[in-house]
Simulated assay, not measured.
Amino acid sequence: MSTSAEAPATIPVFDGHNDTLLRLYLQKAKPPEDVFGKGEGSGHIDLPKARAGGFAGGFFAMFPPPIKMPDLSRDTQAPRYDVPLPPMLPIENAQASTIGMLSIMLRLERAFPDDVAICRSAAEIRAAMAANKIAALLHIEGAEAIDPDFAMLDVLYAAGLRSIGPVWSRSNIYGHGVPFRFPGSPDVGPGLTDAGKALVAECNRRGIVIDLSHLNEQGFWDVAATSSAPLVATHSNVHALCESARNLTDKQLAAIKESRGVVGLNFAAGFLRPDGSMRADTDLDIMVRHLDYLLEHLGEEGVAFGSDFDGAVIPAAIGNAAGLPRLIERLRGAGYSEPLLRKIGYENWLSLLERTQG
Rank of each mutant, 00 (worst) to 15 (best):
G100Y: 04
F309T: 08
E243R: 15
D194R: 11
T234N: 15
V263W: 14
E40V: 03
A78F: 07
L340Q: 04
T98C: 09
G191R: 14
L341H: 00
N172W: 10
A111E: 11
D283I: 07
I91M: 07
F271R: 09
R332N: 04
H139I: 01
S4D: 15
F271P: 05
I286V: 14
L248C: 08
R162H: 06
P113M: 07
R246M: 10
A334K: 15
T193N: 09
E347N: 03
S244H: 11
D187S: 05
N18H: 00
Q95V: 03
E40R: 15
V263Q: 15
F14W: 15
F112M: 07
L24R: 13
L72N: 02
L89H: 00
C203A: 08
E109W: 02
F220E: 05
K197Q: 14
T356N: 10
E347V: 06
M287W: 00
I286K: 06
L22Y: 11
K343T: 12
A245K: 08
P190S: 12
T98I: 02
A145T: 06
Y81C: 07
A316C: 11
S42N: 14
I118W: 05
M62A: 14
A245R: 13
P113R: 03
F309R: 03
S73N: 10
M62L: 14
E338N: 06
G196E: 14
T193H: 03
L231G: 04
L215W: 02
F36V: 05
P12L: 02
F180S: 13
G142K: 00
F14K: 05
A61P: 00
R342T: 04
V263N: 13
L85M: 14
N247G: 10
A151L: 07
A334Y: 10
N320W: 08
T226K: 11
N204S: 03
S236E: 12
K257V: 02
N247P: 10
F36D: 00
I164A: 09
P31R: 14
E6N: 10
Q252F: 03
D147T: 01
G299V: 07
L137G: 03
V313H: 10
L253I: 11
E296Q: 15
V116N: 01
D15W: 03
I328S: 03
A52K: 12
G302Y: 13
G335M: 14
E301Y: 03
T3M: 15
V35E: 06
D310W: 06
L108M: 03
I104K: 05
N348R: 10
Q27V: 04
A127M: 03
A225E: 12
A52E: 15
L26Q: 10
G58E: 02
A136N: 01
L108N: 07
P66D: 12
G37L: 09
D75A: 13
K49G: 04
R289V: 02
Q77K: 12
S171G: 14
E329A: 15
P65L: 08
A29P: 01
P31G: 10
A317Y: 15
D19R: 00
E243H: 15
P179L: 07
A78C: 01
E92T: 08
P179A: 08
A122D: 09
A123F: 02
R107V: 03
G53W: 05
L352S: 06
P179M: 08
L156W: 13
G177Y: 06
